[in-house]
Design a protein around this nucleic acid. Structure first.
Lengths: 216, 216
DNA sequence: AATGGGCTACCCATAAAGGGGTATTTTGAA
DNA sequence: TTCAAAATACCCCTTTATGGGTAGCCCATT
């Protein structure tokens, strides 16, 4: 990476934005765009093929959204640095992105020079965050009660109940019998609670919950 | 104990369950709840102080679990009769409870009347077991070989390593990449470690491991 | 009356996990 | 050196889990 130019893949469903970003990056002789994708599926296919140093991922895409793509990329073993690029500064998105393995979160309304500089920093392994984003994260961190990544309080009673049972190692079927509801319904609650907490599996949920309980 | 009401201590981390059980016992004029604890530590402190005739001990508690609490109580010289109350009918738990000095093992899904009757029997010195439990014990007795609950020490280095990663919430695929082996091999190790520990799923394994780590 | 959240339950699909087996290679201890 | 355990990797199969959708019902707020 020292002598060779850093490889970058762009993932955005707006051709114009990709083109602009590509030209912007082309100005730098130590970075080059080696792949482009207009959706999550293509990104998943191309990432392993090109194994870029950096992936710039749009958060707001049709179909598979950025967070979802991010998750799947990490699941697929992609170790490239990944920064999210978006117009949105929704708190939840930021937290979800970071907790799902994003290395940065930049807003599209940044000045091009600044954006380029941040991409530089990202390539060198630093976590990059827009100023507005750092505030959001800082705010989230200042609230000691609920952890940044996940709000236990955002769960409904039922979801919390089911999370507790997961943390005892129970399967959906067992939980269903325990609560006297169908296992399909349990699945729905699990689905929702995983999304709310930004976790990828019941195992993560169980571990997280147990640690949570242990701390209090 | 003949003329006076039998004294009982409840140990369960669910306040609701304690309350319900307490009210249930309050219906009987020959038994009274003299102490309550929501965790193993409190139980260890209160047991010598109140020296109850009977201790009803929840198996599935956060932090120090029921089995561990049971061991420590016996180690501390507590001679009260102790019955385990639980939702779990995991074979190993039953065996572990009995071999560690429990005088009974009841399931929480019993009918209240039946539960009360069993508690009565326990106070009078009889060993009480849920029906489903007796079968498990019988089966276990037929296989004298392997020791009760769970030996971390019986795991190979690789198995322990993988168990630790499971306790971090990782999937087999992720673990495979982490250790640079095939995910099929990870499955084999998981299979073996679950069998050795007498657990039914990676979630149980994760929870068990996290608790294990928290205690040490 | 209308809206929305929460709970229930199902549909569909794919991915992950679990449990049995065989087999090769490596490693360490007898 | 010989043997057994450990680690690796695959085969088979079934079960669980996950993620998307629609939809009805209840209840509270508007």
């Amino acid at each position: 990476m020292a002598t060779e130019a850093a490889t970058i893949m762009l993932v955005d469903d707006h051709p114009l934005l990709r083109k602009g970003l590509k030209q912007l990056i082309a100005l730098e002789d130590d970075m080059q765009v080696v792949a482009e994708a207009s959706n999550g599926q293509d990104a998943l296919r191309l990432a392993p093929e090109y194994d870029p140093d950096l992936i710039v991922l749009d958060l707001n895409m049709q179909g598979m959204d950025g967070i979802e793509t991010l998750k799947k990329l990490r699941d697929a073993g992609v170790t490239s640095r990944i920064i999210m690029l978006t117009v949105s500064d929704a708190d939840d998105d930021v937290v979800a992105a970071i907790t799902n393995g994003a290395d940065g979160y930049l807003l599209k309304d940044m000045e091009p020079e600044q954006l380029l500089e941040q991409i530089h920093r990202a390539v060198t392994g630093k976590m990059v965050l827009s100023e507005a984003i750092t505030e959001i994260l800082a705010t989230a961190l200042r609230q000691p009660a609920k952890t940044p990544s996940s709000q236990l309080s955002s769960l409904t009673n039922r979801e919390y109940e089911i999370l507790s049972l997961i943390a005892k190692g129970m399967s959906n079927k067992v939980i269903a019998r325990e609560l006297d509801i169908s296992d399909g319904t349990v699945k729905v609650h699990v689905k929702h609670l995983l999304k709310k907490l930004g976790l990828r599996s019941r195992v993560e949920a169980a571990v997280w919950m147990v640690n949570q309980q242990g701390e209090n």
